[in-house]
Write a protein that binds this DNA or RNA. Structure first.
Lengths: 134, 134
DNA sequence: CCTTAATTAAGAATGGTTCTAATATAGTTT
DNA sequence: AAACTATATTAGAACCATTCTTAATTAAGG
């Protein structure tokens, strides 16, 4: 189980340090979409700089995805264990995972329109609670 | 033509100041996805603070959309004249508009999955030039 | 015109993120 | 298993895009 995490890191050519194992375990066991600061609060023995450095490595390795555009102005992070997109409740800033959308038609349309080869996508939807009184 | 811009602002309950007319005209005639700083460079008589304030008003009024997640770390802005999404060339940071995707199935799926009423969406795709030697 | 609430603007302040440079460690080699 | 080396970690400083402050200006309606 710890060996499994070690293998994941090695597959991505990342040195299996204690900090990275701890952070990977943390990300894979939380679906709370934390910020770097929230992670550092939960894991105070890992410096904030290392949280940022490691998250960047994880994002490059596609182990983690970034969620931007939340009205708190901070980046949120999410384990990229399965393809999915995010729905953000703009009244509460709650971030909800969703995975019931097939991106293939979107990607094909974009490749046809631009001539590029799509390597990554980000789909964020913003919504409100129906019948909510504002 | 200037009266048309004035009407647009008034429809959104925004005072038709010279700065806002100039900025709206600028946004609607440029498809260059500028940052606030780029706009201020092109329109130096409008203060940077006003560029930011006005863009925020325009975004709230859905006259302009924000493009985040570009690797230069800055927000880019785009006139929201028609529903569309963006494709970002990660090798050059070029931002390409695309409008050949119907978001209705995506929105329906998200509403079914979350129970929220979707009010806004952001779709950003990242790609590279095919056959490009890195 | 007058009034007033909203807007503009210059610069200061903020704060999330990145950088620096010194120390420690993982992974590999003898 | 000791030595080597490239990489990782860290505390704190620095950065800089964005937001805030506050005083002067202005649009819109009476």
């Amino acid at each position: 189980m710890l060996d499994q995490l070690k293998s994941v890191l090695q597959e991505h050519k990342l040195k299996a340090t204690n900090q990275r194992l701890t952070l990977l375990e943390y990300m894979m066991s939380h679906d709370t979409h934390p910020t770097a600061e929230m992670i550092h609060n939960d894991l105070p023995d890992i410096s904030l700089a290392t949280v940022y450095n490691t998250l960047e490595k994880f994002v490059n390795a596609k182990l983690v995805v970034v969620i931007e555009g939340i009205s708190d102005g901070k980046r949120h992070y999410d384990a990229a264990s399965h393809p999915h997109y995010h729905v953000i409740n703009t009244q509460t800033n709650e971030i909800i995972d969703a995975a019931n959308f097939d991106p293939a038609p979107l990607i094909k349309a974009a490749e046809a329109a631009t001539g590029l080869q799509i390597t990554e996508y980000r789909i964020d939807l913003y919504g409100i609670k129906p019948n909510a009184n504002d």
